[in-house]
């Protein structure tokens, strides 16, 4: 984005009139061209979006918890999206030196959903709830202009009696990746 302005030294009507009235010739003026560039930028504040640990799911229920907060600052239209590494929360072995998914592990029946709520700023938040999508981006929010916006994230993981309990040291797990970027225009 390039901004070009010509700054003419002050020649307001009032000044000209005043100078003429005083018997003075109008002041000569010089001009100065100023060129400046302003690059597009996107900033993501994720200090409020930490890992969710110790989430004890009810045997049957909606199971809603906070996913933290995110802030986006941008000087051009932006999108905030989320991707999921799994379509369902999947069995995760925490007893390993490096925790990992269990091969052919159990999965929960329903997908995890992420619901953003704008808590400040100017971006419109889609009414859609992001669902479990693997391999594709899911839009959480679109900012239409410049400034900063903040979002509160709500996570919901429905369960039913058909979902299997896990052995000690195993949990259900999913990775969410939040990405802030410019829009394509």
């Amino acid at each position: 984005m390039k901004i070009r302005r010509t700054i003419a030294t002050v020649t307001t009507a009032g000044a000209i009139v005043a100078a003429t009235a005083a018997g003075l010739a109008p002041a000569a003026h010089a001009s100065q061209n100023v060129d400046a560039t302003l690059g597009s930028s996107v900033t993501l504040d994720a200090t409020g979006a930490t890992n969710v640990t110790g989430w004890a799911l009810a045997t049957t229920g909606a199971n809603t918890t906070s996913g933290g907060t995110l802030g986006v600052s941008s000087n051009s239209p932006y999108t905030l999206s989320v991707t999921f590494d799994k379509t369902r929360m999947t069995e995760w072995d925490t007893t390993l030196g490096t925790p990992a998914y269990v091969a052919s592990g159990k999965t929960l029946t329903s997908p995890l959903t992420v619901t953003p709520t704008r808590t400040g700023g100017t971006a419109p938040v889609p009414t859609l709830t992001a669902g479990a999508v693997s391999g594709t981006s899911t839009l959480l929010a679109t900012g239409v202009g410049t400034g900063s916006d903040s979002y509160s994230l709500s996570l919901s993981q429905p369960t039913t009696i058909a979902d299997s309990a896990l052995t000690t040291g195993h949990t259900y797990h999913v990775v969410l990746t939040y990405t802030a970027s410019s829009t394509l225009g």
Binding site: N51, V52, P99, L112, H173, V175
Partner: peptide
């Protein structure tokens, strides 16, 4: 992608965060 150094992966829901240049 950015993270606090040494932050362990894990938790029921693990969050990753990133900014992109198109």
């Amino acid at each position: 992608e950015f993270a606090v150094p040494g932050q362990q992966s894990g938790g029921a829901v693990e969050s990753h965060t990133r900014v992109a240049s198109l």
